[in-house]
Amino acid sequence: MEDRQQVNRDLAKMLKGGVIMDVVNADQARIAEAAGAVAVMALERVPADIRKQGGVARMSDPRLIKEIQAAVSIPVMAKARIGHIVEARVLEALQVDYIDESEVLTPADDRYHIDKAAFQVPFVCGARNLGEALRRIGEGAAMIRTKGEAGTGDIVEAVRHLRTLFEEIRQVAKAPREELMTMAKEMGAPYDLVLYVHQHGRLPVVNFSAGGVATPADAALMMTLGAEGVFVGSGIFKSADPAARARAIVKAVTCWQDPVAIAAASEGLGEPMAGIDTRAMDEAARYAPRGV
């Protein structure tokens, strides 16, 4: 493995057991850092606002990204549209620590993702299942997040995607070796990465959970199911008391095995974000099926 690929995968290991929070400006970034976030994700609008306001969602204004970088010392990630090579090059030029090639923004390419191996800066990408995760890793992603359904505050899709990923990893791990090529063909995944999963029983990169976390208990649930950390988008800054909720979610991720601590962290946080029941959503309103 090349040094650059290794240090990019290694940075994600340092984020494990932590919470990465969506922020749209420097003030939110400071709140996130003070609450104990391990990184912030810069984007133009949080997913709940993208849903409400509609229109095309794009990369943030570079000035806002620079202000966020100046405001905090934790890693700063930023979102680029799927397939938008130039947004990603701009983010690399801004020296963000991680680029999220994200289905939450409006895709720029409905057929191809970015050739992430051509970049020095690492990428995180979303996935709903093992095939999707391995395709992104094959393109050069150094970290995966299961997608969930961003901006809904409904945890069911995050649970479905994480469970699906682990179920498929278990199938590959226990399959006889002669079945692996057919599995690779059927899930549309590179054979060498299927072989890695077969041999190691896990992805070759860190996997966080995203898309729907609104409460400390939601975050701890994803840790319980095997996520190595959690992304929280609208769940924090669309709630009544973002600072308190951010602290509580960090605490719950650290103490995911301790219900007494989660209970204490969950007390008196005020209103969570208003949710959307994903079962009632139109297919076209879903972000997760974008860029698979």
Partner: peptide, 14 residues
Amino acid sequence: PGGESTAMGKLLAE
């Protein structure tokens, strides 16, 4: 271990 020192420092205190 390695990680984010601000996050870890805050949790150490908590």
